[in-house]
């Protein structure tokens, strides 16, 4: 490990504050509901799987008001659900087959750095293959996106299309197909978080139609 240089004092203090905050939160939560932790220790039965961006400005539980125990969460750069990413596939498998979540939410956000990077021609080293996933979304919707002359509007639209494509990727998984055929759940939603007002925009995707469309090529339940 390389020798570390000393961290500025204010950043060190920020780190120490985290532990202070945590203790205050734990005590307050205990006061609100003395059985809260006892119930959590028994296990988790979340209704939701949240797939979101790693971006610090979109904390899943805060923006939805969900409590500990209510949402299983995976967050990565630009909320990508690639079929060769074993991490994401494991999250989907566990959430659907073992936790039996009723609802899967893919939540992107406007102003996403990962989506922005996909619209540039920069070499980003190890990030290139990851960002390529979003460039592929652009290619799938090239004519629609190219027709948008305003740069910001085109960027916003790619954020939305990326969310929809990742919903489609989830719908194509073995775990989703099998669960939906047997149980009629989970439901899949595509959302975009708006940084400028803190509100969520529901893209109102028709996930049943997406599943129907994917059957011919991707079905493994017939």
């Amino acid at each position: 490990m390389p020798t570390a240089v000393a961290l500025p004092k204010h950043l060190q203090q920020r780190y120490e504050q985290i532990f202070e905050h945590n203790q205050a939160w734990a005590a307050a939560q205990n006061e609100r509901d003395p059985d809260f932790y006892k119930k959590l220790v028994q296990g988790q039965t979340p209704d939701y799987l949240w797939i979101g961006c790693s971006d610090a400005r979109v904390p899943a539980e805060l923006v939805t008001g969900l409590l500990p125990g209510e949402a299983f969460v995976h967050r990565n750069v630009a909320n990508v659900a690639s079929n060769v990413d074993l991490s994401m596939m494991s999250v989907i498998d566990y959430a659907i087959r073992h936790l039996k979540v009723r609802h899967i939410i893919v939540c992107g956000h406007y102003g996403c750095g990962g989506v922005q990077a996909s619209m540039n021609s920069k070499d980003l080293g190890v990030l290139n293959p990851w960002i390529r996933n979003i460039k592929d979304v652009y290619r799938l919707h090239e004519s629609e996106l190219d027709a948008i002359s305003n740069n910001k509007e085109r960027y916003d639209r790619l954020v939305e299309l990326n969310v929809m494509e990742q919903c489609r990727n989830i719908i194509k998984t073995d775990a989703f197909q099998e669960s939906y055929a047997a149980n009629d759940f989970p439901v899949v939603s595509g959302w975009v978080f708006k940084l400028h007002d803190g509100l969520i925009k529901d893209l109102k995707i028709d996930f049943r139609a997406m599943l129907e469309d994917s059957h011919k090529i991707y079905s493994i339940t017939k």
Binding site: W25, L40, P59, A60, L67, P68, F72, V73
Partner: peptide, 9 residues
């Protein structure tokens, strides 16, 4: 990913 460990909260 466990639902009981929401970092920000």
């Amino acid at each position: 990913s466990d639902s009981r460990v929401p970092e920000t909260t």
